[in-house]
Design a protein around this nucleic acid. Structure first.
Lengths: 253, 253
DNA sequence: CGTTACGTTGACTCCCGTCAAGATCCGTGG
DNA sequence: CCACGGATCTTGACGGGAGTCAACGTAACG
């Protein structure tokens, strides 16, 4: 690796300019014009965090806001007695931080090695204040996040453990197949970015219940495990029938 | 009533102009200047809904967006088999609808008699597009809603039935006392705007569990009921100690 | 190898959902 | 005035789904 040309060491991402950034068209900067992009270039810097490393702690002063460039992070909150609930999954192009707020509202932790494109908070707030583009983009992204959060409320409040696991599998499968050029339709395979513990935090379950329900879905041939993280969905309709969202598709195997 | 002067028939609200509106300084229009307010006046109209009446259905075309002026409404979603989860409580000054989206994402239902200040969707979207004021205000409100939704995720995913009820009581008590000029500190009394059924929908519980936990909190003298809806909190610290959020205050009575 | 983190499985418990029966409140009408 | 019916709420009995505690299996890594 160390002898490879520089450009190949980061195959998915360039850490140099916005023009060649892999999240350029999906992140908060998606609607920026050339001039606005230059202002962003001036205030931005990259940081990386190892898997498991804390990015921000609830209550800390927010030094920067920014976008996830590569990797997966989680948003979570912990009760005084130690119970943890994940509140969001941060994927590439997702935005971290709230302009106009000085303190961090949730713990942010890297689940894999994460690269962030950070903006110093104050200059970014100024930029948002005088470029409607960015404010509108932030609004659209916030409203999307709100929809995601509310969907998750339905899952947390009303779904059974089996349905919760099925929903998580379906969500990751859908997201993965959306990234691929051609939708395979049958036999979707993906890598689950979450450990059993992280799944439990996300779904409001214990790690034991997560494990048991995954085993149950495997025995019912709804999912197939190559290893702990590699999952194949032989028939997406049958998985969807387990989520509680779909009424139909409960036919014989 | 019919012989009263016009101004007294709606003691809390005037349905005539924005200038004298009771939510003028808290709603989406809070930061509008006189000229923007005039544009809003042109596109607005009032509608009222009786308790229990549907305001919008998930999947319908969104005809209007708007603000709650008086009353309380709920945002909810229903699974195919009938399970219901409330996703938000809409109080005076809260905004309904998402600019830029043609279809309604959740059921919206009046819990009490509700008055809405409605804006036709298309003109409102145009207004948002060319007045940064309103976009920024919407962004701030959306981010607040996101915080509320995520707090609720923690409650739904990790709290016990008793803690959920205590949280709901504390939330309504806090909101009510915030409206009053002087904070009474001891012996907060409020009217619960939700039926047992609505509480269950909000908290992800059955009506029976809601009833049992309210009885339990009453027997422990955490709450006092005058009637079904009139609730007094003799000691806010003791209630907070039951929410799971507070670590301290678990001392003897 | 041993160590450690992660995942699975079993036995048991308990919280909350389900089903059912009453209780209370309220508006309507005789 | 009371009787009646419906909606709302409470209470009890019971069962099941998920949590808890514990042991074991597996993989990664020194």
């Amino acid at each position: 690796m160390k002898d490879m040309p520089m450009a190949l060491r980061h195959p998915a991402t360039s850490f140099t300019t916005c023009a060649v950034c892999n999240i350029r068209h999906r992140a908060v900067c998606a609607t920026c014009n050339a001039k606005e992009l230059m202002r962003l270039e001036d205030m931005k810097y990259y940081r990386t965090f190892d898997a498991g490393q804390a990015i921000m702690y609830e209550g800390d002063e927010m030094q920067f806001v920014g976008s996830v460039v590569t990797g997966v992070a989680k948003l979570s909150r912990t009760l005084p007695d130690g119970r943890i609930q994940m509140l969001g999954l941060l994927l590439p192009s997702d935005f971290i931080g709230r302009p106009g707020r000085a303190r961090v509202a949730y713990d942010v932790t890297a689940l894999q090695k994460v690269t962030l494109c950070c903006f110093r908070r104050k200059p970014f707030e100024t930029l948002v204040a005088d470029t409607p583009h960015i404010g509108q983009r932030l609004l659209a992204m916030s409203l999307d996040e709100l929809d995601v959060a509310r969907n998750w409320m339905l899952l947390l409040g009303r779904k059974t453990a089996r349905e919760k696991i099925a929903c998580l599998m379906a969500m990751v499968a859908r997201r993965t197949s959306a990234l691929e050029p051609a939708a395979p339709k049958n036999g979707i395979t993906f890598e689950m970015p979450l450990s059993r513990e992280a799944m439990g935090e996300y779904l409001g379950l214990t790690i034991e219940t997560v494990s048991r329900q995954i085993t149950a879905l495997r025995k019912d041939d709804i999912i197939v495990l190559a290893d702990q993280r590699q999952i194949t969905i032989p028939n997406m309709d049958r998985l969807n029938a387990e989520t509680g969202d779909d009424i139909g598709a409960a036919s014989a195997p």
